[in-house]
């Protein structure tokens, strides 16, 4: 249909007649009021009506925050127990640093010869090796600082002087010198240790279990221990 056809049927005479026949008729005023009131009401209802998520937003947020807090409270003590130790490397870190140093020294010597021969062309390689050695030394120092005294003792870098708590725990568990039992004391997780104590108790070795439990409690005073095991602490210590 072309746009000219659109107006083709217009008839001015008919239009004029149509306009004369009640063209000013309007709906009753009461109807106007009703409809406008309904429109206003609908707007208020819409404004007051909150969506599903909007209604549940606050309680869900509060519940989620509560759950997260409870979970953190439950799990944090287990995580913060200072028992997890790094396993000792196959070769001591300081040895690795020395090895790197020893590798760097021949390299430095070689580069010096080459420097003489080739008028100092390979300075970069030498510098990088020296840098590697320095980085390794720094790492070793940092790791030594971080490593527990028990590991250091096990590696023989310093005399065995564990903290009083660990030493007491180790001695009370094994009855022997701290140096011999350090590995067990420090590499065992508290949960495993408790399981072991539980096994001893169920196996009827209550004295040993009580001894172990005392050592455990001394080492981990804040770790939760179930009441049946706690009852073992009532038994008098074996002298």
């Amino acid at each position: 249909m072309n746009p000219h056809d659109d107006n083709g049927s217009a008839d001015a005479g008919l239009q004029a007649l149509y306009r004369q026949t009640g063209a000013d008729r309007q709906p009753p005023a009461q109807l106007d009021r009703d409809i406008l009131q309904a429109a206003a009401r609908a707007t208020h209802i819409k404004a007051g009506k909150r969506g599903f998520w909007q209604r549940l937003q606050m309680p869900v947020s509060v519940s989620a925050a509560l759950v997260v807090t409870i979970m953190l409270a439950r799990w944090m003590p287990a995580v913060t127990q200072p028992d997890l130790q790094l396993p000792a490397p196959a070769t001591p870190i300081s040895d690795q640093a020395q090895a790197l140093d020893s590798r760097a020294q021949p390299a430095a010597a070689d580069s010096g010869i080459r420097e003489l021969e080739e008028a100092g062309t390979d300075r970069l390689q030498e510098r990088s090796l020296e840098d590697n050695a320095a980085v390794a030394r720094r790492k070793a120092a940092a790791m030594e600082k971080l490593a527990s005294p028990a590991i250091r003792a096990a590696k023989g870098h310093m005399p065995s002087q564990p903290p009083a708590r660990e030493q007491g725990a180790a001695e009370s568990r094994t009855g022997g010198p701290a140096g011999q039992t350090q590995t067990k004391a420090t590499l065992q997780l508290p949960a495993d240790w408790l399981a072991e104590i539980r096994q001893l108790a169920t196996a009827g070795q209550s004295e040993r279990a009580a001894r172990e439990l005392r050592a455990f409690v001394a080492a981990y005073p804040h770790y939760p221990v179930e009441p049946p095991l706690k009852a073992l602490l009532e038994t008098p210590p074996d002298h």
Binding site: A23, R25, Q26, A39, T43
Partner: peptide
Amino acid sequence: GYAGGNVDAFGCLYERHKGGLYRFLL
């Protein structure tokens, strides 16, 4: 505007079209 909560917009719209629609139906 009315869909966004403006009642005045509806009033204006109603005033514009009430007569024509009413006569059409009548």
